[in-house]
Design a binder for these strands. Structure first.
Lengths: 327, 327
DNA sequence: AGGCTGTATGTAATCGATTACATAATACTA
DNA sequence: TAGTATTATGTAATCGATTACATACAGCCT
């Protein structure tokens, strides 16, 4: 069933049917009703592919994710889905890991553009200036999550603040032997985390010895990182009192393993997994406000799609500390 | 940059360029190389929208989910993403909750078809025969997850077996006062769960009094269901020894709350959330083999897309019990 | 030489919409 | 009454590909 079929049945031209469908131009009330009736009766659905081709707007947005396995990615996509559904957009999810050489993300973007996608949300972090530059100059609307560069629009959790507050909270509880994870990646957000903690520590005249700085990267996923972290910490001669981790999952797993090994190290997480409340002891963590992140991603992207200029190149979204039993 | 631009630059017709791109028909080696060279130099990307319109194959598959908030949905989509990426397919995720009246899922399917989608994976459960009938007769390839009907192709976890094994395991541990969740929905998988447990119980001459059958549905999500379940169980005069739940999340939350309330009820879950291993006590659960589910979903769908007949209308995927500390 | 076959390439219709432009009828204005 | 808006509708080009069909040339066979 296509527009020309409807046109024939209504004894009008396709132009008139199109006008009715898109509510544009002049159509007599009589024909409008007739056409609408036929459309309803025949269950006619416009071919969006053809429409997209003609008007160069597909109402499709692609989200590039490293994987669908972190609660952050899931949760934000869930919120995005709600927003996009409401706005008549379709969400495409596509995978790109930085393991396939960061440079080729440029090709990924090109590939998406060739599908006629209106805009792209990049959840796979960018670390290279050069790549950021290249992506920034492509003429497809793009917004990054938690990766900021001068050349790119981005929406970010204010991890610096959260890390700072978290460290401060730990210190306020009277702890001084504080370890934390220092991921040696170059991702913006990771650096923020590190610096936030540093700031609080320095402010209170504390210093963390190097061997309490755990690199959580080598484990490919948080599960493995948790095991690595726990194994490392629990075999130390001088164990820290608290380990501030950047991810709930790492903490939850490490906490459990340390308990089993009899290491009395306390943990804090980040991300506020639902489950963090139900482990023992309930995990102190930080909530990123994923809904707000999703909203801002959408808002920025739509502004770009509409060929307007977003209010800010880099949007920061405040989160909040969630204090529970663990620290 | 379109195909006609390439054609002009190479001094050939669009037909020849198309032949080179699609490796079809005759093209002289000389022109083939020239055209390939130009394509590379110009970074030309074929317009997939136009192509899809012409050949009526979009290489897009849609997955209809109730929400992106359960680990099952996430995990399967993650696996699907890997498979689809490899096969050159694009994954579209779209939301449909049964709260918006199950009937209108028919419209959702129609809407997707109008986007030129090649096939649909339905993760939003179907419960109505009538709807199944209607969807079954639409001429779009569709596969359901965990919802089976005579009219529809489906891939399902063998929940009956798992529930049976789980109950048997609990009984084998010496427990006799066994409660479990009886969700009053009509979803196929929910009934399977109930019947699997029943079978094991009856086999061992056990009977569960009605007030130990907890309806977990009223809480909209597992989090709430967990709270409701724990609250209910812990205030009972005669508490069961074990509660067999259909979802890890419910168990994890209920287990924690019962601990706090001093109720000594043990829990088992289902779904094998990564986190289930790290709560205290580590949760005994069942693994659905999500990867296999995803593979079968893909396989069945592709077979339908290729206009062939899948081996089975209803595919069952075996899972396995994971015995840990909780029971 | 005439007829085949295989290779190479181009022309133009087509997929299903949108829309600029032309045209026509009607109503309004001076 | 001629001229100008306003309303209504249709014609045909267009978006960027694919592909059936037509054409042409080369080599080969008898």
């Amino acid at each position: 069933m296509k527009i020309s079929d409807i046109a024939r049945m209504a004894n009008v031209s396709t132009a008139t049917v199109s006008r009715v469908i898109n509510n544009s131009g002049y159509v007599s009330e009589e024909k409008r009703q007739l056409i609408n009736k036929i459309i309803k009766e025949t269950n006619y659905q416009i071919n969006l592919q053809a429409k997209a081709l003609r008007i160069s707007k597909s109402k499709m947005i692609a989200c590039v994710v490293p994987a669908l396995d972190s609660s952050l990615v899931m949760d934000i996509n869930n919120h995005l889905l709600n927003i996009l559904n409401d706005q008549g957009y379709t969400l495409i999810i596509t995978k790109f890991t930085n393991r396939n050489s960061e440079k080729s993300i440029v090709n990924k973007v090109r590939e998406l553009a060739s599908k006629g996608i209106d805009g792209i949300i990049l959840m796979t972090g960018i670390t290279s200036d050069e790549v950021a530059q290249e992506i920034g100059t492509m003429n497809v609307p793009i917004v990054c999550l938690n990766s900021y560069f001068d050349q790119l629009y981005s929406v970010n959790s204010d991890v610096y603040q959260l890390a700072y507050q978290m460290a401060k909270h730990v210190i306020d509880q009277g702890y001084t032997k504080i370890a934390y994870c220092k991921c040696y990646g170059k991702a913006s957000i990771t650096t923020d985390f590190y610096q936030g903690i540093q700031a609080a520590l320095i402010e209170h005249g504390l210093k963390t010895p190097d061997h309490w700085l755990v690199d959580c990267q080598p484990g490919k996923n948080h599960h493995d990182s948790g095991i690595i972290t726990a194994t490392y910490l629990s075999q130390l001669e001088d164990q820290p009192e608290v380990f501030i981790s950047q991810f709930d999952r790492i903490s939850i797993i490490a906490q459990k393993i340390c308990q089993e090994k009899g290491a009395k190290i306390r943990f804090t997480g980040m991300g506020n997994l639902e489950i963090a409340e139900f482990v023992t002891p309930a995990l102190t963590t930080a909530d990123y406000d994923n809904q707000k992140l999703a909203q801002n991603l959408y808002q920025t992207l739509i502004t770009l799609i509409d060929k307007e200029t977003p209010a800010a190149k880099k949007v920061s979204v405040e989160g909040r500390l969630i204090k529970r039993e663990s620290v």
